[in-house]
């Protein structure tokens, strides 16, 4: 049984997980649900299962990177870091700015580093910052390649309209499952990453299997994301679906697949090991923004389709988000830690 106090401190991370599930599931299944290709019920079931699997099986890579940025050693400190990231996401969403949990948590960790006089690892920070730019660009490139391939094979295979609809439904489910797995693997670090160095949970033994604190945290975080998917994602999915609905169903499917691949690339330890084995440059394991990956993919598709009217204000807002989100989160975290330490007398460092 988890100590209620520990659960209380974990609640900020779990809330962040819930918000992530409610918002980012739409990037995975929004198109499929919005266009009625997959029912919301089925999407929620698949998304919940795979997000938990992704978090538990492949969540370690990105969590280690966040750990290198700032290893928070006290539970109240981790609580405030996650809370300030969640608060920043909430405030910025209310202000209509596109916001990423990944960017908020990085800002919050830097806020903790500043408060605790810990030096921020600049090489890790640079690595993280570079992925924010690479992520949408890579999604755009992957989307362009996939669209070219789909056009090439579509012309040669001559699949009927009705049959291709059936294939698209199956593909949307597989892409959604991959996307949910990748979302869990990549973004679980945002949810419970800051709690890992503290190791708040005692080792749990069920039969002959031992579950470490980290594994339990991944499971709890994954379940929190799944709860967000099941309780609040429907509305967001419908909105994202109708936004993406201006794309053809093939383009929308490609946007989802590209997003899923990008998230997977930035989370896969297996791929990292494979690249290392062959002496190739590795892809940093960093939590990236799911929404920005989708926007990047759509941008790539738009370029290929010769749509010149690029929504520069959307691009501008994303770039502004790269700066504003972490700065706001860092400030909120710094002030919050100050209150927690000096008003409530809690050990935060």
């Amino acid at each position: 049984m988890i100590d209620p106090i520990i659960l209380l401190f974990l609640s900020s991370g779990l809330f962040l997980g819930w918000a992530l599930g409610a918002n980012d599931a739409a990037n995975v299944f929004g198109t499929a649900v919005g266009t009625k290709m997959v029912s919301w019920r089925n999407a929620a079931i698949i998304c919940s299962i795979f997000v938990v699997l992704g978090a538990v099986i492949s969540g370690a890579g990105t969590s280690q990177t966040l750990g290198k940025l700032g290893a928070i050693t006290a539970l109240p400190g981790a609580f405030m870091t996650a809370l300030s990231a969640g608060f920043s996401v909430f405030v910025m969403t209310k202000s209509g700015l596109p916001v990423s949990t990944s960017q908020a948590i990085v800002g919050a960790i830097i806020g903790w580093n500043v408060f605790s006089n810990q030096a921020t690892d600049t090489s890790t920070l640079t690595k993280i910052l570079s992925t924010w730019i690479i992520c949408p660009l890579l999604a755009a490139v992957i989307a362009i390649v996939l669209l070219k391939l789909s056009k090439y094979f579509g012309r040669r295979l001559k699949i009927s309209l009705i049959r291709s609809d059936a294939y698209k439904r199956i593909a949307l489910i597989f892409a959604g499952a991959l996307g949910a797995y990748s979302l869990g693997a990549n973004n679980i670090a945002n949810v419970v990453g800051v709690f890992i160095p503290v190791q708040p949970l005692a080792e749990l033994t069920i039969g002959s299997i031992n579950f470490s604190s980290t594994q339990q945290l991944f499971l709890l975080g994954g379940l929190a994301i799944a709860l967000g998917v099941c309780t609040y994602s429907k509305k967001v999915m419908m909105t994202v679906g109708s936004d993406l609905g201006q794309l053809s169903s093939t383009s929308a499917l490609i946007a989802v697949i590209s997003h899923s691949i990008v998230l997977f690339l930035f989370a896969s330890q297996g791929l990292e090991a494979l690249l290392l084995k062959y002496g190739l440059p590795t892809i940093p394991l960093v939590p990236v923004s799911s929404s920005q990956a989708v926007v990047g993919a759509i941008f790539g598709i738009s370029i290929l389709q010769g749509i010149t009217a690029v929504k520069w204000h959307v691009l501008g807002k994303i770039i502004a988000g790269w700066i504003v989100t972490p700065v706001v989160a860092a400030l909120v975290c710094f002030i919050g830690l100050f209150f927690l330490q000096n008003v409530f007398g809690l050990v935060v460092v």
Binding site: N42, I45, I162, R163, A166, R169, I170
Partner: peptide
Amino acid sequence: MFENFSLFKRTSELESKID
């Protein structure tokens, strides 16, 4: 997810009717 098992049957029926 489970309705996809009958998806191809429905698809073939529809294709045949259109033809």
